[in-house]
Design a protein around this nucleic acid. Structure first.
Length: 556
RNA sequence: GAUCUGGUAGCUCAGUUGGUAGAGCAUCUCCCUUUUAAGGAGAGGGUCCAGGGUUCGAGCCCCUGCCAGAUCACCA
């Protein structure tokens, strides 16, 4: 990047950087800095006169003559630091204070401080600086929101595009954003703790899969050069965890980054995190009892378990008065048409019911609610219901109109499983692009060796975090949400057409009268104006004024 | 994919019928030794997202494109 592309503020900071080097101060020192305290500890265990060594970004630097107050931000918060010229520079040479601290240090620079704790006249806990070390210079100014006495934020850094693309800056200046991610990690830790205490085993399974199974979604495809085979990024890890249950583990779980090549919106990101757990010798009722504790038990969430439980059949009756029990595909399709739901020939019975539920019921479940007993056709990996062969032993946990968790009594009958896969294949051939197009024969082989009765649960972690942190957008709970790539260096040295035309004419003559050049160029007023100004900015031409004319001169 | 809204200084935002591009904070200079978003005085800082068009003249009007957000569609 040339200095031409830099803003005034960035140029100033680069100049400060050079001046620091000229003073013998390395702006990016290699040696460790012996930090021994953080801001939070200072405030929590205040000891008058205690010597501390702290480090962080300087986020405020209010100079008042021969003293000044700064604010140092570390990972846990902010602490005020007090610079006093004659304490920092006891001798004749006051340059460390007058030049370095007052002028060459900028907001955002990392500095290290050794000093003593004291309270100011207004009672704010502060560090009286004894020694000062520059740890890293910031060449780009951070956004600078300010918080007033009432906690109201002024000039907040709110532009979502800038915040997501430059999350590092967002995290520095928006403490509430950092909080969301701390909560996210605490949720992971709490769930791990909960499962580990119960003796379940955390595992890792393949992300690159020869068949993207376990869910219905369009996968990202890639290719392995050495084997010369196509591979898919996983859309789910379900089938691999079940293989481990076959192998003898009785409780396995995995936090699984899944990838789906579909649309993006405020609840969908191409990569997202699911937590899947499978426990042998259990059923979906057991899982329902445990889910509340597993997800919310460790957190201060205003939930009262047990949540309401509604069968899918009852849910549809509740919101439409229509009973899907025993209805044929045609009867369901006719009802949909009569009630304003778009249907087409590719839709089987399961899909039709799913449409009715999605259209008329789903959005109404704001409070946590278990929807149970899904139709067989829409749950190809789930065991048939013990009381009704047209249903499956499945539940989903709905919160705020969105699915948070999905659980089964897992299908472990290999013959039934093969038939379900074949049904999916038929639906796919019929045009249902959500139905699975491949049969995972290896998975069927595993089931043939025998899988114990098992209950499985999947939780959409991102949506759960959204819910727990009260965020309406998935982008707010992912550090780096997917964005269209930013174009850097677009404004290259290339000339516009107008500039080229003018330059061509001028290059033959070297120097020309401006009006002659304009006439010869034959450009519209606007194009002429843009072209000649552009060339001047590129430093290619120079306009000089004589007594009676303007002369354009080719430079370089 | 559709519709709507937006893109102006480092950040947050104004910008009048279309007539010399503004404010606050930040920055720079000077003064100030216990300040609390904001002490005083002065100064600098712009490819108004990009490209076309209309016009004597466009940040503003028209067209095309790019990026983002929201709503909808899609997504077990």
């Amino acid at each position: 990047m040339s200095t031409v592309d830099l803003s005034e503020l960035e140029i100033q900071r680069r100049e400060s950087l050079q001046k620091l080097r000229d003073l013998g101060i390395e702006p990016y020192p290699a040696a460790l800095f012996p930090v021994d305290t953080k801001s939070k500890e200072i405030k929590g265990n205040y000891e008058e006169g205690k010597t501390v060594v702290i480090a962080g970004r300087l986020m405020r630097n209010k100079i008042q003559g021969k003293a000044g107050f700064g604010q140092l931000q570390d990972s846990e918060g902010k602490i005020q630091v007090y610079f006093n010229r004659d304490e920092i520079c006891p001798g004749e040479d006051k340059s460390l204070y007058n030049d370095v601290i007052k002028k060459l240090i900028d907001l955002g620079d990392f500095i290290g401080i050794k000093g003593e704790l004291f309270k100011t006249q207004v009672g704010e806990i502060s560090v009286r600086v004894k020694e000062f070390t520059l740890l890293s210079k910031a060449l780009k100014p951070l956004p600078l929101p300010k918080t007033d006495a009432e906690g109201k934020v002024h000039d907040a850094f709110t532009n979502p595009e800038l915040r997501y693309r430059q999350r590092y800056a967002d995290l520095v200046v928006n403490p509430h954003v950092k909080e969301v991610f701390i909560k996210r990690t605490k949720l992971f830790n709490a769930m791990r703790q909960f499962f580990n205490d119960k003796g379940y085993f955390e595992v890792e399974t393949p992300i690159l899969q020869p068949i993207a199974g376990g869910a219905a979604a369009r996968p990202f495809m890639t290719h392995h050069n050495a084997l010369d085979v196509p591979l898919y990024m996983r859309i789910a890890n379900e089938l691999y965890l079940k293989r481990l249950i076959v192998g003898g583990f009785e409780g396995v779980y995995e936090f699984s980054k899944n990838f789906r090549n579909e649309g993006m919106d405020r609840t969908h990101n191409p990569e997202f995190t699911a937590m899947e757990i499978y426990v042998a010798y259990k059923d979906y009722n057991w899982m329902m009892d445990g889910t509340t504790k597993a997800t919310f038990g460790e957190h201060e969430v205003d939930f009262k378990a047990p949540y309401k439980r509604v069968t899918m059949r009852q849910s549809i009756i509740d919101f439409t008065g229509f009973d899907i029990q025993g209805k044929s595909e045609k009867e369901l399709a006719d009802w949909c048409k009569a009630n304003g739901i778009d249907v087409d020939d590719t839709m089987g019975r399961g899909k039709l019911i799913d449409e009715i539920f999605g259209e008329k019921c789903e959005g109404n479940y704001i409070q946590p609610t278990y929807i149970t007993d899904y139709p067989k056709e829409m749950s190809p990996l789930c065991k048939v219901h013990r009381d009704d062969p047209t249903l499956t032993e499945r539940f989903e946990l709905m919160v705020c109109g969105k699915e948070i968790a999905n659980a089964y009594s897992e299908l472990n009958d290999p013959i039934d499983q093969r038939e379900r896969f074949e049904e999916q294949l038929k639906l796919a051939e019929r045009g249902d692009d959500e139905a699975s197009q491949f049969i995972d024969h290896d998975f069927l082989r595993a089931l043939e060796y025998g899988m114990p009765p098992t209950s499985g649960l999947g939780i959409g972690i991102d949506r759960l975090v959204m819910f727990l942190t009260n965020n309406p957008s998935i982008q707010e709970v992912l550090f780096f949400p997917q964005m269209k790539p930013e174009v850097f260096g677009k404004k290259g040295p290339e000339l516009t057409d107008s500039e080229k035309v003018i330059l061509d004419i001028l290059s033959k003559e070297g120097t020309m009268d401006l009006n002659v050049l304009k006439t010869e160029a034959g450009l519209s007023n606007k194009q002429w104006d843009k072209g000649i100004k552009g060339l001047g900015k590129h430093g290619l031409t120079k306009v000089t004024k004589t007594d009676d004319a303007l002369l354009v001169e080719l430079v370089g």
